[in-house]
């Protein structure tokens, strides 16, 4: 059972502001979601049997410098940024 406190904590972390009337609804909905997902528990899976996850290990990169992307290319996705930086305007 999801508790009222858990709902408030998650809302706080998600920057959501819930009215008193919304808290109980949210609690019930989240409970429903968790219970639905709990069906997965019934599947008998031993993670050790998953080959991809265990057969590969130690994939490393060598400590040798390769050229980075040019600054303008890096900032292309944010309209060129500002003075070479990613830029976040003050918001209220």
């Amino acid at each position: 059972m999801i508790s009222r406190e858990e709902v408030l904590n998650i809302a706080n972390l998600s920057k959501l502001y819930l009215d008193e009337s919304e808290i109980e609804d949210a609690r019930k909905e989240m409970d429903g979601m968790i219970n639905f997902a709990k069906k997965i528990d019934k599947i008998d899976v031993d993670f050790k049997d998953l080959p991809e996850f265990n057969s590969i290990s130690n994939a490393f990169h060598e400590d040798e410098i390769k050229e980075s992307y040019p600054q303008n290319k890096i900032l292309e996705s944010v309209d060129g940024g500002k003075d070479g930086y990613f830029y976040i305007k003050k918001f209220n």
Binding site: H61, S68, Q71, I74, G84
Partner: peptide, 14 residues
């Protein structure tokens, strides 16, 4: 493999 370097121009080791 980007350089781990202090004091570069911003966003040039990315």
């Amino acid at each position: 493999n980007c350089a781990n370097k202090f004091g570069s121009e911003p966003n040039t080791n990315c």
